[in-house]
Design a protein around this nucleic acid. Sequence first.
DNA 1: AACAGTTTGGAAACCGGTCTACAAATCTTG
DNA 2: CAAGATTTGTAGACCGGTTTCCAAACTGTT
Lengths: 344, 344
Amino acid sequence: MAQPSGEARRRPSMDDVARAAGVSKAAVSKVIRHAYGVSPEMRDRVERTIAELEYRPRVAARVMRGQSFTIGVEIPNLGNEFFTEVMAGASSKLRGSPYQMIIAPGLGDGRGAQVLESLSDRQVDGMIAISPGVSSEWLERLGEEIPMVMLGRHDRAISYDTLTNDDALGAELAVSHLIERGHQRIAHLTISSDEESWPRTPHGIRHRAYIDTLEARGLTPVVSTCEYSSASAYAAGRELIASGQITAIFVGNDALAIEVLRALADLDLTTDSVAVVGYDDIPLASHPRISLTTVSQFGRHMGALAIELLLERIVGGRTDSRHEVVTPELRMRASSAAPAPLLN
Amino acid sequence: MAQPSGEARRRPSMDDVARAAGVSKAAVSKVIRHAYGVSPEMRDRVERTIAELEYRPRVAARVMRGQSFTIGVEIPNLGNEFFTEVMAGASSKLRGSPYQMIIAPGLGDGRGAQVLESLSDRQVDGMIAISPGVSSEWLERLGEEIPMVMLGRHDRAISYDTLTNDDALGAELAVSHLIERGHQRIAHLTISSDEESWPRTPHGIRHRAYIDTLEARGLTPVVSTCEYSSASAYAAGRELIASGQITAIFVGNDALAIEVLRALADLDLTTDSVAVVGYDDIPLASHPRISLTTVSQFGRHMGALAIELLLERIVGGRTDSRHEVVTPELRMRASSAAPAPLLN
DNA sequence: AACAGTTTGGAAACCGGTCTACAAATCTTG
DNA sequence: CAAGATTTGTAGACCGGTTTCCAAACTGTT
């Protein structure tokens, strides 16, 4: 039965199994899906044949009528440890279920919609996404086609679930903490965005809360923006520090904050001169060499919760939308431990 | 034309497009695939209808006869920045091509094969994988079904391509460097594995080279193993350091090395007491707060190269296998800068 | 005008599953 | 033991694309 070399082997189809077992295709299908109407003997015979032929159904064919048993996760950025935490949480929740998780990395800019379409084209049974740049109207339409959970969306939706942390509270915790440490000149480094959706994104809300918190205490905001890249965050951070006008920086997230720490070190300074606070509480933030004060939004938990919500839709058939909000917590560490220095 | 609310919208099919444009399904298919035999007027008319209906072909249906335009990437672990670098390299190379990349995270242990099967069931057009635990025979069979590039495999394969760095050289660079710095008691922390494939895995080869390099200079190896997790690496590293018997640790990769740095700091020690060298040169290694001496294996480049090899198979139709080896380079940083301390 | 060669568009088979509808076989029950 | 109910297995339609094959229309040539 040796195959002619060079020629690709054809994997067995359900027909092959049916023929080998001397039954119908429909019977094999029933056995595979654990459907009703199969005698123990038939099940046994078919299962043995399946094992013998090493048969596995092709997902594409299955998709055309049934389900794909695939859950798609879109993340805007591969390099940010926060997202890998979310995925780890999601992944753990999926273990043991028949669902396979696939991750589609974003393409940068406002191209998140393309990735979501691409997942939808692959007919995943449901999807989880973090796409701040995509419009709500567009998502509502997509949500009507496919079960969906969006992370980091503060608007309540109709056709899909939303899951976020209380970014306003989180930012307030961070900024208040710096003020309590005696800081008066606190800058904010955030990700630039010319989208009109900006005010409702996590970074937009943190930005707003930063300004509100400062102004409530009579302090002046100093806002700097950067692109979603290490190099850009480094440059923006370095400029802020070099200006000598500030004693603390509240950075939009931990990944960027760590670049600010890099700039600080490259300028031969420490967090005693300029305190740094991030957002997300990625694992690295607790590393003693980094020891970054930050706000935890429980990424692993969010990932797990997102899967729960999604499975409620896929398996449970829920169609009304839910909006869950996680309460963030401040994590005080060395990067904001020193008292605020005096500016000369 | 409003849809009854609550009912899921059905997305348009190729038939809908054909009907709306007043042509046949086959014609629409030809237009989409840019196939031969379509007049400019027909192309125009169909394309307009496609745009109007916002039609996008379903990948599953397309897969049944044609291609999926999907490339699957299996990675053993989400948390390791080295893998995200590889994927970033792959992703950048795919930009602008019609192929979409999907990532399937491993399930830990030796369950890599399951993920590969799962990708194969989804009929990706090709896949890239990093599965040290899977047997070569099994991979050869899979390679006959689907274009495949394996990373970190030192064996030459027949049905798929292999791409690796010279781990023996890399480990030798690392260990020699420590010896030149005056270290005599150099430990190695590596990932445990009871697989028989161990000697041919990257970590196995680094381990072998470590021993060979030490013994060539008449030094005694001290090997410690840990699981593929931060907590385990931390514990193993801490134990090695606390033993007081060594002045340097060559760690299997950067992600684990950074956990060793954590243990070191928690013990109120610095790399002046125990030098640390990693492997991979992840972006974080160059952070001044970390400044980890390591060996670069050019992850981004490897990711890009893997895609090139894969596309040669998918698009170019190459069937003979290739085996590419990248030459690693030492990156000297602060974690090994101090002269070796004397052991009391 | 007749003919061969080339373009163009469509009908229908096909991919590999799921699912519906139904017939045959078996089991209950009076 | 007949009638009805239930269980078991199958044929065939179906999903939405791709691909093959063929007929019709058009082109150019003599």
